[in-house]
Design a protein around this nucleic acid. Structure first.
Lengths: 106, 106
DNA sequence: TTATATTGCAACTAATCGGTTGCGTATTTG
DNA sequence: CAAATACGCAACCGATTAGTTGCAATATAA
């Protein structure tokens, strides 16, 4: 199944999972406690997150700890970069407009 | 229908549309020429993008120009902000590790 | 006015999604 | 060893998605 980061973060539950494990690794059971849905539903989300490499596993006995692959988040940042350039440019243009108004007031 | 920016950018065709109209406004027909699918399919994507306010319309005779609402893109940036903090912190930690190694070499 | 062009909207369809229940496997505990 | 725990995987289900075709509405051109 073709998956990408943008599809992964489209679901609000998955964004919540990302936020949860961003700072410390957690097991599926521990994560599921934060949601109303079943453990299996959470597990399915984790599978999707793993498939697109937004999350990595660390096996520890019969437990599996999931943690955020922060490097993959930069992919979204890189995509946003081109648009950040646009809004920064527009801001500068606005800046120019404002200083032009100022100059004319004198 | 509940829509948000993250759902909007989940679809690759919609991301392509966003990239197309980022710099200049375009009509649905003009946009559709860039894709293999029909004009109606593109129109549907434009409706979704409009619904979540990622795109705005400018009526001009019988033509409708669509352009990017760059302000809405910042919403994604704000969401990413918390994770940017994490990877910047990790980078600083790595920096500390590196300087510790350097110090020990002396 | 009649014909043409640009577009949105509705109905339909196949595929995918997010969720469920049930089961198999592996590890820990009594 | 047997029971309990932690987890993944498969099958199924209703809702949503992305696409299609067809048609109505509006604006321009002949």
């Amino acid at each position: 199944m073709r998956r990408d980061v943008f599809q992964a973060i489209a679901d609000p539950t998955r964004r919540a999972i990302i936020a949860l494990i961003a700072l410390q690794a957690m097991t599926p059971n521990a994560i599921a406690e934060y949601f109303d849905s079943t453990r299996q539903a959470v597990s399915k989300h984790l599978r999707i997150l793993t498939e697109c490499e937004l999350v990595k596993q660390t096996h520890e006995g019969r437990e599996i700890y999931y943690s955020l692959e922060i490097e993959k988040m930069k992919e979204i940042d890189r995509w946003l970069e081109q648009y950040r350039k646009i809004w920064e440019t527009r801001f500068n243009q606005l800046d120019e407009v404002l200083s032009t108004i100022k100059r004319n007031k004198k």
